[in-house]
């Protein structure tokens, strides 16, 4: 087995083009499990952990560019003094999702780029990225492009990357509205989601974003639920009044999210359970997000 260890993005892209058989390796939390159990014997590994251009993040206008090599622990800020980072404050939904991943050891090593590379329907970043309307930045020796997250997941554990491409970053709009993420599993740590849901409310563009995990062959949005809620918020003047959400809107939103899922029965749960769980997760996270939106309004009113 060959071990390729580029030290710059240019070298990494050249290696990717020259060795299409090489498996990119970031935190290794997915790849190494496959190697340890001999489920995979690639001819070469392409180590990305020495490529500085993939690390770090910066905010540019309303968009945050998160390097593919950014770890979950960097998103949560759990190792930072005070337990929070500027990145986590800018992207609270992603920080919440990152917080539920694996264990401290996994969060110290696993990356957002690796989550997208694996493209598992249970990947915890995905619902938030869908709800935020993020894009994936891909690069190759041919150039750079942005893939809208809606077009990124092409099948079970498949994504839209070309064989010579690497993920360089994720571009996440940060509108500053409320964001929530919740997932269901058997305990708090080390849990692959039985079902997960993210909601992002954008008060500026009056947009509602959603993302569902572990309940379809790929992570998906609940487009009809987004429309239903955006319609109700606009129709009743709720964006402006920040008044209480009618109970019926909350219930119907949950039902519409559940209807958008096409889950299967597996060892972690039945399709019926997942549908029911999603309705509950959607109603609950909407309640939390709306509570946050109202509280922010009161604070602004006082300020």
């Amino acid at each position: 087995m060959e071990f390729l260890r580029p030290e710059s993005l240019g070298e990494a892209l050249a290696a990717r083009a020259a060795h299409p058989e090489a498996v990119p390796l970031a935190g290794g939390t997915d790849v190494m499990v496959e190697l340890n159990f001999a489920r995979r014997r690639p001819a070469a590994l392409l180590d990305l952990t020495r490529v500085g251009e993939l690390t770090g993040w910066h905010a540019d206008g309303g968009t945050v560019r998160v390097g593919a090599g950014v770890t979950y622990a960097e998103l949560t800020g759990e190792r930072a003094s005070g337990g929070q980072t500027a990145l986590g404050r800018l992207l609270p939904g992603l920080a919440m999702a990152a917080r539920t991943v694996g264990s401290p050891q996994i969060r110290n090593r696993g990356t957002i780029g690796g989550n997208l590379g694996s493209a598992s329907p249970a990947g915890d970043c995905h619902p938030v990225l869908l709800a935020s309307g993020a894009s994936v930045e891909a690069a190759s020796v041919r150039g750079r492009r942005q893939v809208p997250i809606d077009d990124f997941f092409t099948g079970v554990k498949r994504n839209a990357l070309a064989p010579d491409e690497l993920i360089t970053a994720v571009l996440v709009p940060a509108p500053g509205g409320p964001e929530q993420f919740a997932k269901i599993g058997t305990r708090n740590a080390m849990v692959i989601a039985v079902a997960a849901f993210a909601i992002v409310l954008d008060p500026v563009r009056r947009r509602v974003g959603t993302g569902i995990g572990s309940a379809a062959p790929t992570p998906v949005r609940a487009v009809a639920a987004e429309r239903l809620l955006a319609g109700a918020l606009a129709g009743d003047g709720l964006w402006e009044s920040r008044g209480p959400l009618p109970e019926q809107v909350v219930t119907e939103f949950g039902q519409a999210v559940s209807a958008a899922a096409s889950p299967i029965d597996d060892v972690r749960g039945t399709a019926g359970y997942r549908k029911q769980a999603l309705a509950v997760l959607a109603s609950r996270t909407l309640g939390w997000a709306w509570r946050d939106y109202r509280a922010a309004g009161q604070q602004a009113g006082r300020g």
């Binding site: 071990f3 390796l25 290794g28 190494m32 499990v33 190697l35 050891q105 110290n108 090593r109």
Partner: peptide, 9 residues
């Protein structure tokens, strides 16, 4: 940084 050594190549 604490990591699982079994997952580091």
């Amino acid at each position: 940084v604490p990591v699982c050594a079994c997952l580091v190549a």
